[in-house]
Design a protein around this nucleic acid. Structure first.
Lengths: 344, 344
DNA sequence: CGACGGTATTGAATCGTTTCATCTGACTCG
DNA sequence: CGAGTCAGATGAAACGATTCAATACCGTCG
């Protein structure tokens, strides 16, 4: 029952021209006589002909798609990044394929392989593997890639990242300024650079305030999600000297934590101030709106895509040698109720 | 600088065999002598050869990718659907390309065109256009498609949906059982079938309780998101006879609404009971956990993908004629604090 | 020894485009 | 009238894989 696919030859025959002319109507309309063009377009319409991308890319060597590999599709932060990237890519006539590594280097490697098979035009990636080894095949194939939310090492390619050290310092600095002297840092998987940098930033702020490093107590979690936040709350409340403030490595953790605190009857912010990270939409929708470190997520996606497109076109005209660039954006603290002491 | 792509011919030459043999090593290894196979694999490894998908699909006529078109990537409900679909597809060796229509029929049509160009194996779609007209090109090209979260009309193809009428009835019935007699329905764009069905269900429950239709006051919103919920709250509180309970067409609305109520000092659930829809993870993470109608989102994605795969293989062996199937899943009410009257 | 069977390999045809060198007329100009 | 120009159209080669009929080789059996 499936219709037989109609190809460019069928169109050519029906319009009484050669395949070359049909192809030209699509790719350089100005070189085809107007009336021929119209006749062909009419036939295309009538037969419902659609170009086969696979045939085009076979000829051109690479597809019109860029891939985006994110750590967690369930985190709205990455959804925002994806949106930014998608907009930029579509403006350039490219499609975006978004895939989720769930922070697993193995998944990451698998997807990279898939992308190479697809001969994607380029790859945007928030790396799950800190070594960057999973990206080696891309380099080998000469496929441009840009790291997102991660500063690339020298010669590893372009990157767009946010200064996580500064972000950590902002969060901790804010809590210190509110008078807190025992602060918990709810972190995540230690192999993620972001986690480490945010801690570093927090410690810097503490040192700058002339306080000892012990001011910060780290509470690691296995997963950067809401459930992880709930778990962390239990451990937080079980600490011998209970902190009066907590800085969470992302908003999902903060939300889970905040809920568990509420359930345990611990008042936010009076008994426990909370600061999150990412400033996702949901963060401002909690009953006690969450103070959070905002990352310019959509911008990051957009910039990364633009950098990638630049690199792609530099590859084309081999004359201009491409210089890897590293864009570092600055985070911003958004203060809301969850970290403001009641006026006393 | 970009490495020259290595093709199957290079491998064949380097291994001293014909291209056919190399191809066979990949596609029917058992028909190649073990030692030849090993030699070829070694060469593949050494040269870093990767099959070109475009060439394969050109030959086979369709790609190894299925597309998933969702209404709103920012809604975790659809992320769950995507996860379910992705798992099923990858189990069958297919990739999934997820795209976001943002509820715009125009975007939907554009993406459909893209999918046809890509000759995707099949399409899963949560339709933004109620007429189903945007799907016509798919039918024309004989590309299998399954509607997700929407009951397809006869002969429009397979579908996997959740009984939204039942869901609406569950929500309203629950509120009625709690003694509420003035209920608001915060709805969304009227062209979405889900919105209409949930209202229908609510009205059925009201009728079943022997109450007048006026028991339900509809508050429409433009967008099914958190901001829409905040807006709705203002209108809700401005109503002449303020309802004592509100049923929101999805959880995002409910979250925005709940926050605005909190800010306005309206106690949930004492002064206003709230019920949402979808039961997204975030819904249970609010300070006052949200009562919500749970949809088996991941199951829906999985089932839809499975139905699609079935249809795909039925198309292959043209012997078995494919019968369109319609799976209707049942929603489930998850009662949490936001709708439970304090014990009086 | 010749016919046969089975396994492993070959190489040409094919998929649907794009590209480019070539061709065709029509028109202009000296 | 012949040469030159130019817009438009042509058709074959190429892209990189898969597939399949044909072949080569080897051992076995009658």
């Amino acid at each position: 029952m499936a219709k037989q696919a109609v190809g460019i030859k069928d169109v050519a025959k029906a319009a009484g021209v050669s395949v070359g002319t049909v192809s030209n109507t699509f790719n350089r309309p100005q070189s085809v006589a107007p009336q021929t063009r119209e006749r062909i377009n009419a036939v295309v319409q009538r037969l419902g002909y659609v170009r086969s991308e696979s045939a085009r890319q076979l000829r051109s060597g690479s597809s019109r798609i860029i891939a985006l590999l994110v750590l967690d599709m369930g985190n709205p932060f990455f959804v925002d990044v994806a949106r930014g990237a998608e907009r930029a890519a579509r403006a350039a006539g490219l499609g975006v394929m978004v895939c989720n590594t769930a922070q697993s280097p193995a998944e990451e490697a698998e997807y990279i392989e898939l992308f190479i098979e697809q001969r994607v035009r380029g790859v945007l990636v928030t790396p799950a593997d800190p070594s960057g080894r999973t990206l080696a095949p891309l380099r080998r194939q000469g496929i441009p890639h840009v790291m997102v939310d991660r500063l690339a090492e020298e010669s590893q390619g372009c990157s767009v990242s946010v200064d996580d050290v500064a972000g950590g310092a902002l969060a901790a600095g804010h809590l210190l300024a509110q008078g807190h002297r025992r602060i918990a840092y709810v972190s995540g998987p230690q192999h993620l650079q972001q986690i480490k940098d945010r801690r570093t930033g927090a410690l810097q702020a503490i040192a700058a305030a002339g306080l000892p490093a012990e001011t910060l107590t780290e509470i690691p979690t296995r997963h950067l999600d809401i459930a992880g936040g709930r778990d962390a709350a239990a451990r937080l409340l079980g600490l011998p000297e209970r902190p009066t403030a907590v800085f969470c490595a992302n908003d999902l953790l903060a939300m889970g934590l905040q809920q568990a605190l509420f359930a345990a009857g611990v008042k936010v912010p009076d008994e426990m101030a909370v600061v999150g990270y990412d400033d996702i939409d949901f963060a401002s929708a909690t009953a006690v709106p969450l103070t959070s470190v905002r990352q310019p997520s959509a911008d990051m996606g957009r910039l990364a895509a633009e950098l990638l497109l630049q690199e792609v076109s530099a590859d084309d005209e081999t004359e201009t040698e491409h210089e890897h660039r590293h864009v570092i954006l600055q985070p911003e603290l958004v203060v809301r109720a969850s970290s403001m002491y009641r006026v006393r």
